[in-house]
Amino acid sequence: MYNFNFQSASSLDDAAAKLAAAEDGTVIAGGQTLLPVLKQRLANPSDVVDLSGIADLKGIKAGADSVTIGAMVTHAEVAGSSDVPAALRAVAEGIGDPQVRNRGTLGGSVANNDPAADYPAALLGLGATITTNQRDIAADDFFTGLFETALNDGEIIKSVTFPNATKAAYAKFPNPASRYAMVGVFVAQAADGVRVAVTGATECAHRGPKLEAALSGNWSADALDGISIPPEHLNSDIHASAEYRAHLVVVMAKRAVAAAG
């Protein structure tokens, strides 16, 4: 790991000021991805600004029709919170292993936008809103590419608000070694319609319009019979071919619908 200046931020404004003053600064949340990246010398930031001391980024607030989760809330806290809907708790409980869940955070996962991360599917599937120190961003506009998001330089996630759904569930086929999703599908039925989000299959999580159309008319696993996902542009690696991932998208979508009831 290259050396850097470690700085602790006391507030969001303080973090933004420290980032702005740094030559090439980055923020650290739980560090469960950033630290492995730094160890491999894949990044060389001049400054690492720690967000763990910012009270505004903590806590889970349940509203009448949504739940708002602070960016620094860990996966273990989400998994164990009675204020969080079951489908979202299950997403958090399935990330990594217990030690990773004790440190990894919602904001860190969302900002990193790993192509196989679980949370992006939940945000897209529930139509969440990402609140930053600058603005609100709809999940549909947030995940823009491979490790790319709509966040500007110096923009820091404050919280994510998840609207309640009538029915929702997530099903993933985890890589047995890393527990990252080879394919994960989040399905939700809400007042404004059906949403389906797929992670692990392409450069970042995305909506599944074909699956949404089929489920809008008939909310059942059977409604997805006969749907095929073209393997072109799907990820292909040593763990799974594009064709296998295409198959998994439909299988995971069916399992998610069955689990949602």
Partner: peptide, 26 residues
């Protein structure tokens, strides 16, 4: 040293964590 094996697990404020994937300053 890549957060996989768990040989480095310690408790930090009561929770188990991988001490190879945490800065001393944290």
């Amino acid at each position: 040293d890549t957060s996989q094996c768990g040989a480095c697990v310690v408790h930090v404020n009561g929770d188990s964590m991988k001490s190879c994937t945490m800065l001393a300053m944290q």
